[in-house]
């Protein structure tokens, strides 16, 4: 990839990753399967955990 790219700061990666995770969570949320069987809830939980992991490291 071009040399111009190496100037992009690392926190851009964190921002892009955060938008990616939150985007999937919102998309999933807006899609007897109630309560714990509602998979949209779990999709959002998974993405929230990912968001926190990439915030921490």
């Amino acid at each position: 990839m071009g040399d111009w790219l190496t100037g992009l700061p690392l926190w851009w990666g964190k921002v892009i990753a955060a938008v990616f995770f939150l985007g999937i969570a919102v998309w999933a949320w807006r899609r007897d399967n109630r309560g714990w069987r509602d998979l949209r809830v779990w999709a959002s939980v998974l993405m929230a955990i990912q968001f926190l992991l990439y915030l921490a490291f």
Partner: peptide
């Protein structure tokens, strides 16, 4: 201890990871 490596990493730069 960083999940994302700088863009000058020749193998797994953060933009490539995404």
């Amino acid at each position: 201890f960083n999940l994302f490596l700088p863009l000058d990493d020749p193998v797994i730069p953060w933009l490539g990871m995404i």
